[in-house]
Design a protein around this nucleic acid. Sequence first.
DNA 1: TTTTATTTTCAGTAATTATTGAAAGTTTAG
DNA 2: CTAAACTTTCAATAATTACTGAAAATAAAA
Lengths: 165, 165
Amino acid sequence: MNLTDQQQKFIHTWGTLGTNWGINKTMAQIHALLLISEKPLSTEGMMEVLQISRGNTNMNVRALVEWGLASKEMISGDRKDFYSAKKDIWVIARQIAQQRRKRELEPVINALKELKKETPNDEQHKELLERVNDIEDFSIKVDSMLEKFVKSDENWFYKVLLKLV
Amino acid sequence: MNLTDQQQKFIHTWGTLGTNWGINKTMAQIHALLLISEKPLSTEGMMEVLQISRGNTNMNVRALVEWGLASKEMISGDRKDFYSAKKDIWVIARQIAQQRRKRELEPVINALKELKKETPNDEQHKELLERVNDIEDFSIKVDSMLEKFVKSDENWFYKVLLKLV
DNA sequence: TTTTATTTTCAGTAATTATTGAAAGTTTAG
DNA sequence: CTAAACTTTCAATAATTACTGAAAATAAAA
């Protein structure tokens, strides 16, 4: 299989986006490839197109499945596993928001909660406690918005936008 | 100068958060340090507390200033430069949203626009074009929300939340 | 101006993160 | 069951990213 310049550019752009936001480049690139692929792809297919190793492919496909962005497809008459990506941008965004919240936000919020418990309320910790409290308040609000986003349908977003006008 | 365990933990947590989201760990840690510091700090002060080199300190303080998260303070009777961070979590969030949008979102959106222009509208590029169009539509909407967020005051957020109930 | 204090830069190096590939594990067909 | 097809794991290695420290540049004081 061979990609056109445009397809390669899309994959490259998506990979860079991933890298900039702390996502493995290969994971983002496989995602991009699946996003523009009409049919499910096998590990071999991805390896060939992206010029990456079997191990790399396997690990990052697994990550995509764990993130709920791709899923295994059975193709009758073939023993290989095939994978395809969810294509609805709304579903994708929700899925990513949900996962990043769980992985890269919740642990921080919990650590700050812990921290607050064990911090004496003295002069030396005045600034720290103010900051932690502010961050907690803020994150509760953002979190509640994110939660609504994650559980929403596309409609929700339009409604919010309209109300903001 | 010496930090308590709690202060160190805060700095560590903030550094990890940065790393997970594609921000230099030291940059995030200096930010955290300034956030919980009552008075402006000199380069020496930060170097000592965080145990990092002059060069590293200098580069990351500059980055914080460029991001609009910290600013130089003149302290009379001292030739050194001192720095302090903005402490309002709302201002911080807006500043970060604005900067990340400019640095890590706009270039992607522009690349996709370019890509769309140069992609032939044929069978081979059907999926690609659908995806790019979807992403563009989506990002316009998110962008408009982000813009409102960036230009908003805290009040805006509460209003939105209330309307969502 | 010269000297001293301070900041900036950046080539070299260290630390971290990502990738490979072959061996071990698993599944399916015969 | 055995063999072949395929997938997974992970130690070794490569690639990337971050950090250091000393030299160069700049700014302030004498």
